[in-house]
């Protein structure tokens, strides 16, 4: 598949004829320099955007043939996200943030499960705290717990440690891999940190819009 955008009336090719497969249960790192197209690739894989040509099949579904709502449905049922800037809702407490994906699925607020997940990321006793009352590392733990709330089949993590100090980052990564293992989730990790990438089963490198297996 390929992706290009129109910028200042000229066509800019971001991803050029990329082909690859990710098998269920695999952990895959996508590495590359800033602007290489890592985030664009992740957006396409998660169905946040659509390809310019070619096709992406997500859990057996051809994404370009689905409309916005259908792609949202897949995300709510099978996909979890962890973002670089955590993206917690400031007016919701830690436990409420964790239950959010379940509410988006129309499932209701499963407080017990959310509390268990918070406990599994080491935040027992912080359930009612608002994001502003938590440190960066703690906020990312909440985001991790949130990502696993709906038992996703695939977890997309976009530079999950980009906003954290080294020590905290290491803790988060440990947690991420541990939870991934425990829940049997497929992990697609975007990072520019090659050491972090090495912990995944496979590493794909993007350069000038081309993808290479490392």
């Amino acid at each position: 598949m390929s992706k290009s955008v129109i910028s200042n009336e000229t066509e800019l090719s971001i991803l050029k004829d990329i082909t690859f497969d990710v098998v269920a249960g695999e952990t895959v790192a996508i590495v590359g320099t800033s602007g290489a197209g890592k985030s664009t690739l992740m957006a396409l894989l998660a169905g946040l955007d659509i390809v310019s040509s070619g096709e992406i099949e997500l859990l057996g579904q051809p994404l370009s043939q689905l409309n916005d709502e259908q792609r949202a449905q897949i995300r709510s049922e099978s996909i979890g996200f962890v973002f670089q800037s955590f993206l917690l809702i400031p007016s919701l407490s830690a436990v409420e943030n964790v239950t959010l994906p379940a509410i988006l699925r129309g499932e209701g607020e499963d407080i017990e499960k959310a509390k268990q997940l918070l406990a599994s990321v080491g935040l027992t006793g912080r359930e009612t705290h608002l994001p502003a009352q938590l440190s960066g590392g703690e906020q990312q733990r909440v985001a991790l717990a949130r990502a696993f709330m709906t038992q996703p089949k695939i977890l997309f993590a976009d530079e999950p440690t980009g906003n954290l100090d080294e020590h905290t980052a290491e803790n988060i990564i440990e947690l991420l891999f541990e939870m991934n293992r425990d829940h049997g989730t497929t992990l697609v990790l975007i990072t520019h940190d090659t050491n972090l990438a090495k912990r995944c089963d496979r590493t794909l490198s993007i350069h000038a819009g081309q993808l290479q297996e490392v």
Binding site: P90, S91, E107, E109
Partner: peptide, 25 residues
């Protein structure tokens, strides 16, 4: 689906909306 849980989900949305007024923009 568990009706009780659905209702609790709606309650949470209302709670959230209320806080959005006072804490949000």
């Amino acid at each position: 689906m568990d009706k009780h849980k659905m209702a609790s989900g709606r309650k949470m949305v209302i709670r959230w909306s209320w806080r959005e007024i006072w804490q949000g923009q």
